[in-house]
Simulated assay, not measured.
Amino acid sequence: MARAGARHYSERLDRADLRRLMDGMADLIVELDAAGMVVDLTSGGAVGGAEWVGRAFADVVCPDSREKARDLAATDPLDEGEGLGPWGTARHVNVTGAGGESLPFLLRPFRLTPAGGVLLVGHDLAAESRMQRQFEAAQRVMIRDYEARLAQVQESYQRDLRASSVAEAAGRVGISPLEQILSDFARRLRRHCAQEALARSGEDYRAAAELLGISTDELDAILIAPLAD
C-alpha cells in the first residue's frame, strides 16, 4: 500500500536510473523507429549488437519469424477496448544469435509517443525451450519403452495361447508325465482366459474378475503364476 502523499517510485528516478531498472528486468530491449528500423538495443550479449542498428527489425530475425517481426514493428494504434493502452500483444520470435543460431524470445511491443516508434521488451525463452525439448525427448523414451513392453506382452500372450492348445499339450506325450502336462495346460488356459477377460473389460480388473466368476485377488494370482517353459 502506498504511503499517503508519497510519489510513485518512477517519479523519483532519473532517466539513467530508469533505464538501468528496465535493462535489469528484460533480457532484450530493442528500440525501433516509425519505419521499423533498429535505433538502439540492450541485451545480455547473446543476441544483437552494433550490426543490428540501422537495419529493419524484420531482417535481423530468423526467416520463420519475419511476419511476426513486421507485426511487432507496426505503429498502427491499438484497440483501446482491449485495455492494453500502449502495450501490444506479446509474440514468440526467433532472433539470430551472435553465432548465427536461432534464439527464442517473447517480445512485447510498447508504442512510443508522440514521435512514434516501438520499444520491444523481450524475455529469453531459451530455458523454457530447452525444458520443452527435454520433456519431448523423455516422452519419446517413455513411448518407446511402453511399445517395447507391449510387444513383449503380446509375444508372451501369443506363446501362451499356442501352448494352451490341446494339440500342443498332446504333443508333450512321452516327454512329460500326464499329470504335469495337464497341470501346465490348466495354468496356461487359466492365464489365457484371464487375459481375454481383461481385454474384453478394457483392462478393468474388477469387471474382468466378474466375467470369470472369481475375485480380483484370484485374478492377480492367475496372471502372476509362473508357467512351465
Rank of each mutant, 00 (worst) to 15 (best):
A170N: 10
Q154N: 15
A194R: 01
V153I: 10
L182I: 08
Q158V: 03
R191L: 15
R190E: 13
Y157K: 04
V153M: 09
A163N: 01
D160A: 14
F185N: 08
A170G: 14
A186T: 02
D184L: 07
S176Q: 11
S164V: 00
V166G: 05
R162S: 06
V153H: 09
R162M: 06
S156T: 08
R191K: 15
R191V: 03
A194N: 02
Y157T: 05
A167P: 00
I181P: 03
A194W: 01
Q154F: 08
Q158N: 15
V173P: 02
V166M: 10
Q180R: 14
Y157P: 01
I181V: 10
S156N: 13
G171S: 08
R190W: 11
R172M: 10
S165H: 10
A170P: 03
S183K: 14
Y157E: 11
E179C: 09
E168Y: 08
R188C: 05
P177R: 14
V153F: 13
E196C: 03
A169L: 07
A186C: 07
S183I: 02
A186K: 09
A186F: 05
Q158H: 15
I181K: 02
R172I: 03
E168H: 11
R190Y: 11
G174C: 12
I175H: 06
L182C: 11
R190D: 12
L161I: 00
Q154H: 15
E179F: 09
A167S: 11
L161R: 03
A163K: 00
S165V: 03
V173D: 03
E179I: 08
P177D: 14
